[in-house]
């Protein structure tokens, strides 16, 4: 069977949805709403790139939603104080990287299970933020909106940044040795060690990366609206994990790629507009997403059972 069967089937499903939309709800293809949809998904895509790394490395990070909120509020506050965006951006990414490094230390250094570690940091960060901010919004100065560009230019810029990151990282995962190390560690950490790779270091670094990417995504979030909500990252982790898993990245590590994750993200992102355009109530979105995750995981499970 083709090595990329899994990715191709997601692309096929995405194509089917897009064709269905073209037939039953051509209104979906208006340029402005489509651009808005892509803009909305751009920060998610950035985080999904990081999540793909983490899951390929056979770990998981469910604290990204909380990290996203924390960095959004912190960066928003700095921007509101009049810091230039070019300075806020690296600070936001550094803050995200630090938060990720904390997770990475606990997982790689102390060898704690990543699911429980990030569950704990998820709640600690979210509640800590709430405690400090009391749910208060941060008002953003107009100059920050869309990086100070016009709305459509800002939207295009955002989509371009996300796609550039996707392409750069996707290529790096294939064509730079470090990217292959992530696969090696996710496939078999012990064999990787014997091949001269340091699995603990790789594990630590993927958490740092997802943190930094979450910081970047938070920046893309705060320039989109006049106010920064402290709960903006709620549920982001699930959306991102779902996209990555649906896109063919195996939860057991070592398999999958960013292109698949991108297709998975687009597929899931189409659920909500598809529901509205097809006149199904939007409340089904979460249930359908959960169903898609289970379907993808079960499909992988059945496949790996057949192989053994």
């Amino acid at each position: 069977m083709n090595r990329y069967f899994r990715e191709l089937s997601v692309v096929g499903a995405l194509g089917a949805v897009l064709i269905a939309m073209a037939v039953f709800a051509p209104a979906f293809y208006q340029p402005q709403p489509l651009l808005s949809l892509l803009t909305r998904e751009a920060p998610t895509l950035v985080v999904a790139c990081g999540m793909a790394l983490v899951i390929i490395c056979r770990q998981i990070d469910i604290s990204v939603g909380s990290m996203f909120s924390v960095v959004s509020v912190c960066a928003g506050l700095l921007a509101a104080r009049g810091w230039p965006l070019l300075l806020v951006l690296p600070v936001a990414m550094l803050l995200g990287a630090l938060l990720g490094a904390f997770n990475g230390f606990l997982v790689a250094g102390l060898r704690l299970p990543s699911i429980v570690v990030t569950l704990a940091t998820m709640v600690a960060l979210r509640q800590g933020l709430n405690m400090v901010r009391q749910g208060e919004f941060v008002n953003m100065p107009d100059a920050v909106q869309w990086f100070g560009l016009s709305q459509s230019a800002g939207q295009w810029l955002m989509v371009a940044i996300a796609l550039a990151l996707l392409v750069a990282l996707g290529l790096a995962m294939r064509h730079v040795a470090a990217g292959r190390f992530v696969y090696a560690v996710g496939t078999d950490a012990e064999a990787a060690r014997l091949a001269g790779i340091q699995p603990q270091l790789v594990t630590f670094l993927v958490f740092v990366f997802i943190g930094a990417f979450t910081g970047l995504a938070a920046m893309m979030n705060i320039v989109q609206s006049p106010q920064v909500q402290p709960l903006s990252g709620m549920g982001l982790e699930l959306k991102v994990i779902a996209a990555v898993v649906v896109g063919g990245v195996a939860i057991s590590g070592g398999r999958g790629n960013l292109w698949g994750a991108f297709a998975g993200l687009l597929l899931l992102a189409c659920v909500a507009p598809a529901l509205t355009h097809l006149h199904i109530e939007a409340y089904w979105e979460k249930a359908i997403q959960g169903g898609i995750i289970l379907l993808a995981v079960v499909a992988d499970g059945v496949r790996s059972r057949k192989q053994n």
Binding site: L238, Y283, K286, A287, I288, I293, L294, V298
Partner: peptide, 30 residues
């Protein structure tokens, strides 16, 4: 799902975590 497919409980229950909550929201239309 866990016993028949020998899948890790973590990812299965992460899926049902989303599914159950989603069903609750769907039934009540939020």
């Amino acid at each position: 799902l866990i016993t028949s497919l020998r899948l890790p409980p973590l990812i299965i229950t992460l899926g049902t975590y989303s599914l159950f909550r989603g069903l609750a929201e769907a039934i009540t239309r939020g």
